[in-house]
Design a protein around this nucleic acid. Structure first.
Lengths: 343, 343
DNA sequence: AACTGCTATGGAAAGGCTTCCACAATATTG
DNA sequence: CAATATTGTGGAAGCCTTTCCATAGCAGTT
């Protein structure tokens, strides 16, 4: 069926070694032979067999991507960065989208299966127990993105600082009663964002109101979801009818959307009644004018690929950890001087 | 480094053939030998080498997914359907996300590269010239989703009918001056949606107003983007200040978002000033209460995988074409009796 | 005891490539 | 012009499986 180097070798009256050298532009080959072989292989529309090549070279030119689907927007943007960069490098992506947490181990095992991929990009989830040592034993290059482990290269976002900057911004706008809607504290980013929020309040000598703080109940995706935001905001409003907070820092945009819906259902608007500040800058945020903290997702994707490549080429250096600072994106929900950000 | 069947054979004092038979539970092997070998291979934590296996079996257990990133939301949901189904079947996904149209050929070539994948799922784009015959020559099973070619299995959505149902709904609500904002007519779905819209108008004996019809200019993604919607709506409003249309059918949700932004900037709201009906039901739609036509994306993903599997198992039957009908999702932008769809 | 018919097993071959080693052909040097 | 260095080439070995063929071992027949 397929054309092999043997067919080409016969056609060109050379040995298979020579064909291989011609195709891989090896230095030790005469220019004319090489050209003749290339011409013939083109004519016969030769395609190297990826698996045979991989087997011989002990290299797959493929990397595994293990990431949760439930991060949705984040996911797509990071993916673009990864895809663009990786295509340049001639690699392919094996995608493992995680829907339920129990799939993580399954996918990791698959990706680890000998010879399947040259490296792993692992996203936004805790590396399951045992896999840290296993990955190191296997010497399989692995980069963590949006999650951390001291023994692996990682790329994360300064959650604490981001939350701090966000809250300070609300302070600067003159709000005094600043609440927070957070996701489950099981989540490391959620804890960090809480810390940053508290730090900003303390620094401004503003009180922390227990009644304006709420952790999303809906546990899907650790509480980083719309329903959770809706419910949390509903409760806060309904229990504090007479004394509403002036502003909210919310631990993710998607929760902020839910919170805004809850406000809308109660005829409250942002920023007139309550100012809202989110986190993530998902694509949706610009559509609805949500002021938020932006994570440089595309760049994180690109950097992740770069780090992985260093490791694939040479795995012999200590882990490096990069953190990005989120940046404040001012839109409308915090009531600045009507800065129409149209982008 | 890695443990091979030779290591196991030595350890168990058997031949490699026996080891292979034990691992693949071949019938002709004594139960005790098999158990002993399995035990040993577990102890040595043997992992079969995926590429060697693929080479020997002429089977990769991998499929390629070629899809445009710019469909964003659509993309993620279809992907979930695919992933869930494919994981059950023990296959892996090679992802090729297309950002610019010129990447399509590049990715197709890569996917075609001999032995890399057992089949291809091709999405939402026209199959580039020449690849139809090439894919058939290679006998590489290929399924088209959201696009069509007579020679390949396909899964599409009834765009004409969807647009017809959408427009008829607007008619039923009592609107007379019904405009449409469409994407580029280069796009087959855009043409079909236009036809459905016209058919519904004719059937209701309502006039087609040239001045309320507009094709999005911004060419990115064939005009299926937010900026295009924004601009088209801006023009229609600004040129018809004195005599605004009552309702719009818009060829995609993302354009509808842009259109709503344009209205908001002019202090117009939906449905009070102009009713808006979209197409796609991207996740975003429910957040903003957009009435729209839903495509069963998850199911399309699942079905695509199923079709591909039939072909991988037996490629010897004529192409089948499946179409799904979109369903009307009533939310708020068309002014029904305030049906709070909270989901 | 000799034969037949099974079943379980060993190991070569095949899958398609890269790479290494040996050697032939050519070029360089004194 | 012989001796040496250089370059290019053929093809075996190796990567790790699966699969096929031949055979050993054994139970059952006559």
């Amino acid at each position: 069926m397929g054309v092999t180097i043997y067919d080409i070798a016969r056609e060109a009256n050379v040995g298979i070694g020579t064909v291989s050298r011609a195709l891989n532009n090896h230095p030790k080959i005469a220019a004319k032979t090489k050209n003749r072989i290339l011409e013939i292989s083109r004519r016969m529309s030769y395609q190297p067999h990826a698996y045979a090549q991989g087997l011989a070279k002990r290299k797959t030119n493929t990397i595994a991507l293990i990431m949760p689907f439930f991060t949705n927007y984040f996911f797509v943007e990071v993916l673009q960065g990864i895809q663009d960069k990786i295509t340049d490098l001639g690699y392919d992506i094996m995608l493992y989208g995680v829907n339920q947490t129990n799939q993580v181990e399954e996918y990791l095992k698959r990706a680890i299966q000998k010879g399947k991929v040259d490296g792993i990009l692992f996203f936004s989830m805790k590396l399951p127990d045992g896999f840290d040592t296993r990955l190191k034993e296997l010497q399989l290059p692995t980069i963590l993105v949006d999650t951390f482990h001291p023994d692996f290269d990682s790329i994360t976002v300064q959650n604490e600082e981001g939350a701090y900057v966000a809250t300070r911004y609300l302070v600067k706008l003159g709000y005094k009663k600043i609440g927070m809607i957070n996701a489950s504290l099981d989540s490391e980013p959620a804890r960090m964002r809480y810390n940053g929020y508290r730090r900003a309040l303390e620094e401004a000598k503003l009180p922390f109101y227990e009644r304006y703080f709420r952790i999303s109940k809906h546990s899907k995706a650790d509480g980083f979801n719309r329903e959770a935001g809706y419910q949390a905001m509903s409760e806060v409003i309904d229990k504090n009818r007479e004394d509403l907070p002036e502003a909210f820092f919310i631990s993710s945009d998607i929760q902020a959307i839910g919170a805004l819906n809850a406000m809308k259902d109660r005829k409250l608007t942002a920023p007139d009644d309550i100012a809202i500040l989110g986190f993530d800058d998902i694509e949706l945020a610009k559509h609805i004018g949500l002021t938020t903290m932006r994570q440089p997702m595309y760049q994180m994707g690109v950097l992740a690929v770069e780090k992985l490549f260093h490791r694939i080429q040479n795995n012999d250096f200590p882990p490096s950890h990069t953190t990005f600072s989120p940046t404040l994106i001012v839109r409308e929900t915090c009531g600045t001087e009507k800065q129409q950000t149209k982008s």
